[in-house]
Amino acid sequence: MSDDQDDDIILSELEDEELVLQMHDDLYDGLKEEIEEGVNILLERGWEPYEVLTEALVGGMTIVGRDFRDGILFVPEVLLAANAMKAGMAILKPLLVETGAPRMGKMVIGTVKGDIHDIGKNLVSMMMEGAGFEVVDLGINNAVESYLEALKSEEADILGMSALLTTTMPYMKVVIDTMKAEGIRDDYIILVGGAPLNEEFGKAIGADAYCRDAAVAVETAKEFIARKHNQLAAG
């Protein structure tokens, strides 16, 4: 989406709709400063922070995610786009707290014990936040105790576990089995992800779903939360 003409574009002169589209392009190209500028312009024009987040940032990142899935974009480009989105979110976050935004639910997320890979997990955290979830990110190398403590103390709805290594992914089952043993497994929605995982593995270890990328994680989380609300309403 890079275009030499981009150099001539003055963001503040664009109509709202054009500006949002331009921000999608800028996000795609990982242009952090342009994203910060675009966010500030929309806010100055009276946009609600939540609108800026969903339409300009999440909308743009969804395109990035789709093209990553289709093999058009690769990890470096996704990381650059994520950095740009993160910069935009940093402006919006305090405002979202002030103005209020739909609360979807709370997720505790972390990479499993023995694993230090967090690129995928960080993308999921960011996209979940963008979708209105509160995210408690435990970082890397998490033992079962760390997950369980956070789930309880944070009163979370969702547990997200990530692993990049075939040698560490079985640890997800250790966590789920411990939750079963403590009788708390069904209190949480458990989503798992990571390059060597697949749907079959997710089922085998007793997770609610395997999510192949951040966009799928967001959609799956929304579905499960809606189902939970429906069950509560029916009950």
Binding site: P76, L80, N83, I116
Partner: peptide, 19 residues
């Protein structure tokens, strides 16, 4: 090169920060 570090060395810590 596959990690894009030839074009974006600033991404190094995103990949290797925990190593």
């Amino acid at each position: 090169e596959p990690l894009g570090l030839d074009r974006h060395p600033e991404l190094r810590d995103a990949y290797f920060g925990h190593y």
